[in-house]
């Protein structure tokens, strides 16, 4: 089996978001780019699994949809331990077009376990993994919080409302993963960093596809009005405010 990890290239999660004049586009100047945190956890788990199941897993491939500026992120994924990388040379527009490009590359892969983070930390659309699965007509399991290969079977735990479920799935499948699949993302070793340069990074052309949603406008959220301080000796005041003013209890 081969594992494919879909990688999204996103601004560092501590970035202050600025907009270009007119508020129609985000201003990405000076932004530090990182692997989307959930994708990084997916990759970490994929590597752990390959280390433990050499026989079952042949290869880990990372794949992204993006222009050349996404390559440092792919190279970092290679340094962390992916075997090769694919970049679909298209600027990402919306979740749909991204999923279409990924599906085009992955549709011929029948022996594939595809991992995708539950959301990306930029547009938080929770969409690409499910769309990709539907386009491939493959099963998907969402909110996956643990993944194991047991006797060649893919065994996952998914979070459900009010609990969790252990599920087996077939190959190919798309697993949409969240925190728990791994806890701490793996840091590339120096050997990994040195070998990353020699690992294959294939650039493929995208196919034509039209976005279905478009951003019209960005706005900073309204500032919260200032915090009302309450004397710790007077909790009754807090209760009164929550009851009468905020009406939440």
């Amino acid at each position: 089996m081969n594992i494919f990890v879909c990688i999204s290239n996103v601004p560092d999660t501590t970035t202050r978001i600025k907009y270009k004049p007119g508020n129609k586009e985000v201003d990405y100047t000076g932004v530090q780019w990182i692997i989307n945190p959930w994708d990084e956890l997916a990759l970490t788990r994929a590597i752990e699994l390959k280390e433990a199941n050499q026989a079952a897993i042949q290869k880990i491939t990372v794949i992204t949809v993006g222009k050349a500026d996404a390559e440092p992120t792919l190279r970092k994924a290679l340094a962390i331990g992916a075997d090769d990388a694919i970049r679909v040379d298209v600027a990402p527009e919306d979740a749909y077009t991204t999923a279409v490009q990924l599906a085009e590359v992955l549709k011929s892969e029948k022996d594939a376990l595809i991992l995708s983070g539950v959301e990306s930390s930029d547009f938080n659309s929770w969409s690409v993994g499910g769309m990709l699965a539907e386009l491939l007509d493959a099963p998907s399991v969402s909110a996956v919080s643990s993944l194991n290969i047991e006797a060649g079977n893919v065994v996952v735990t998914r979070e459900i409302e009010g609990g969790k479920q252990t599920i087996t799935t077939t190959i190919p499948s798309v697993l949409i993963v969240q925190k728990g699949i791994a806890i701490i993302p793996r840091i590339p070793s120096m050997r990994g960093i040195m070998t990353a340069r020699t690992k294959p990074l294939k650039v493929v052309q995208g196919i034509a596809s039209q976005p279905m949603v478009k951003v019209l406008d960005y706005q900073a959220p309204a500032q919260k009005s200032s915090c009302r301080m309450i004397d710790p000796e007077n909790i009754e005041e807090l209760i009164d405010l929550l009851h009468r003013e905020a009406r939440v209890i």
């Binding site: 440092p72 970092k76 340094a79 701490i184 840091i187 070793s189 120096m190 960093i193 040195m194």
Partner: peptide, 18 residues
């Protein structure tokens, strides 16, 4: 270079996380 930046990032990640 890209490698130098990756090493810097790896050291930073290790330091700030662990």
């Amino acid at each position: 270079t890209e490698e130098q930046l990756m090493i810097q990032q790896a050291a930073r990640d290790y330091a700030q996380r662990e």
